[in-house]
């Protein structure tokens, strides 16, 4: 029921100008770099798609890519059900709800490097309490040397950091479900599980879509926390895609490679996000499509 009015562009213009400054210029720069070979001090040479080929054939990239995919899907697998479960269990409207919301919000409000630092200190063999805890159980926990420990610590850190986002989104979504639906399900004799399946979940669909999209996009770009916790190691166990990108761009001065990688990186996120988006909004009937 929108009014057709091309003057609406005036409203959008301010936002567009700011975004253009921030998006187009770097975008053009990146495209340029990706098609050239740049060495400091020398004029750039046009190399066509060579950079892209280099990236796609590079083992460092390939391994990191697969690792990243695995990580993002693992994250989603843990954080979404956990987030929904916690949201369902949260008390509504009481001092307990307020306290819970604040505690939930805290991990989200900590600068990402502080998150990394907190977990580093928390898990370091000489500083942290976690190794003590595991040693008491008889397990020799070492986040710096043991690949399994490092990988799972990163996963747990992300779960700690980001599950509250899912919880908060679902909490709000749950609050929007009118009581009558639960009452009807009760009257219809539905078990808790069936109520969840046929009443709760369908009505959480739009909230979960946002949550899943955000988590996928952000986890695929993860950098700071991981860097501070493990530095990418031991070896390449926790070297995800952003790590590779930063190394090439900032450390190695391989701008061509970095630019090509950036474009591939962006493209992958775009495609997978779009796929998620289609699947999630198609199943939800009656939602607005944008």
């Amino acid at each position: 029921m929108s009014i057709r009015n091309n003057r609406a562009w005036l409203f959008v213009l301010p936002a567009l100008l700011v975004m253009a400054l921030n998006a187009f210029i770097p975008f053009i720069t990146v495209i340029n770099y990706s098609l050239q070979d740049i060495l400091p001090g020398l004029p750039a040479i046009d190399v066509g798609l060579e950079n892209f080929q280099t990236v796609l054939k590079d083992d460092l990239f390939r391994n990191a890519f697969v690792r990243q995919l695995g990580f993002s899907f693992l994250i989603l697998l843990i954080e979404v059900p956990l987030g929904v479960a916690i949201a369902l269990a949260l008390p509504k409207k009481s001092w307990r709800a307020t306290v819970s919301l604040i505690v939930l919000g805290l991990p989200l409000l900590i600068p990402w490097n502080v998150v990394g630092i907190i977990w580093r200190v928390f898990t370091r063999s000489d500083l942290g309490i976690v190794p003590l805890f595991f040693n008491a159980l008889g397990y020799d926990y070492n986040v710096a040397l043991n690949p399994v420990d490092a990988y799972w610590t990163v996963v747990i850190m992300d779960v700690w950091h980001w599950t509250p986002l899912i919880v908060l989104l679902c909490y709000a979504g749950l609050n929007a479900i009118p009581d009558a639906f639960y009452q009807a399900a009760e009257i219809d004799g539905a078990s808790s599980w069936r109520t969840f399946l046929y009443v709760t979940l369908p009505r959480l669909r739009s909230v979960l879509t946002i949550g899943i999209l955000l988590r996928f996009m952000d986890s695929f770009r993860i950098y700071t926390e991981v860097f501070l916790l493990t530095g990418g190691g031991p070896g390449t166990t926790t070297t995800f895609l952003s790590d590779v990108l930063v190394r090439k761009a900032v450390g190695g001065f391989e701008f061509g490679y970095a630019a090509a990688l950036s474009l591939i990186y962006f493209f992958v996120i775009l495609v997978i996000s779009y796929a998620f988006f289609l699947v999630l909004t198609n199943v939800s009937s009656g939602s607005r499509t944008r």
Partner: peptide, 26 residues
């Protein structure tokens, strides 16, 4: 006891047949 509410309550992911069958299947 069955109750009909002020605004329609249906199980949106189910078709009409399954909606009607819901109480029986439960």
């Amino acid at each position: 006891i069955a109750q009909v509410f002020q605004f329609p309550v249906v199980y949106e992911t189910l078709n009409v047949y399954d909606n009607l069958a819901f109480p029986l299947r439960n």
